[in-house]
Amino acid sequence: MTTTGVILGKFMPPHEGHVALVRTASYLVDRLTIILSASDKDPISPSVRKNWMESLFPEAVVIVANNGTEPLPADSPDWGPIIRGFHPEAIDRVIGSEGYIVDLARALNAQHFILDPMWMAFPANSDEVREDPFGHWKSIPDYVRPYFQKRLTLIGPESTGKSYMADVLAAKFGGPYVPEYGRPYEKYRTTGDYRAEELHFIVDGHVAHRKTLSLKAGPILFEDTDPLLTAVWAEMLLGRSLPDLEARIELPDHYLLLDANAPWEEDPLRYYGTQEQRQKFFTKIKTKLDAFGASYTLISGNWAEREAQAIAVVKEMLKTPKMHGGADAQK
């Protein structure tokens, strides 16, 4: 016989306590339905939360119950008929971590399972996570982290310390960081003049890598180059811009623009080694940043000075959580 179960919650956002709750529920039932309580006033939109829950728990059925302008309290007796409307089949078990599920289970003619009601295993709640996500980073599941994460991208001409700086910052503040995809692409490509499509391949590889590593990174995702810098590479290599590539640019929260006045280190994968070429490259990057209205800090000086400037920027970024506009404005 198939055992069915229901979990009710806002999951705004889901945290590791929720993950433990749902995983435990999966041992208690054969078919689990997650009812996501929502309202028009929620600081995180129901669609975002539904996507999180479906990504975290692909075997469960996730249903959004939007109650309009006002949120419906979890202990409201209205939840019984609402859940019945979504789940007309018999419900065997109601799982949760708070006492209100006793009455809910009774209304659904089901058995209640109250798990970790004192939150001893995972002492976190969604309000605290939302208010201070960086302070509760370990409580945020992988799929949820990019929503709260800030992205800091290092760009500049060749041999200005981008990779070195990304590694230093990730080691100090938590990594991994997103490495440049253009270098391995250059190392293994067929020799000859670059084609426009190759710059798109580089963007494809870089963005895919970024999306993967963002799930494991810290509150700040450090990134060595990005599609904006690839767009500048297109101008340098092809002598023209690529509007279709530039349409793919997603600005990070902030850039560190490393100036061209760093010692040149020979590398067979590098192209533009004269100071005149490096300055031209730098000017094109700065022009592109300004054209896109990007937020950036100029990093200059010797290596120790550059490192100190970069660390200061990161510390400033960590003072405030990432803000979301529109339906997901932080409240």
Rank of each mutant, 00 (worst) to 15 (best):
E186A: 12
A171K: 09
P46M: 01
E89V: 00
W233M: 04
D290T: 13
N302K: 07
Q330S: 12
R270L: 02
L221E: 05
M120V: 15
I155V: 14
R278T: 05
H200R: 12
K41A: 15
L108R: 10
L256G: 09
D78K: 13
G80K: 01
Y194H: 01
P73M: 07
M12K: 04
I82L: 15
Y185M: 02
S26K: 13
M120Y: 12
E131A: 15
F122W: 14
T190Y: 11
R145I: 09
D167I: 00
A231G: 14
R145Q: 05
I249W: 03
T230F: 01
D253H: 07
R195Y: 13
P117I: 05
V129E: 13
A312N: 07
I7E: 04
S295F: 02
S47V: 13
T297N: 08
A262F: 14
P43E: 03
A124I: 09
I220H: 03
S214Y: 06
Y185R: 10
K187T: 11
I44P: 03
I285M: 12
F57D: 08
K286Q: 15
G175M: 02
K315E: 15
D204R: 13
L289R: 09
Y255T: 02
L242Q: 10
T320V: 12
P243W: 08
W264M: 03
M323Q: 15
Y164R: 13
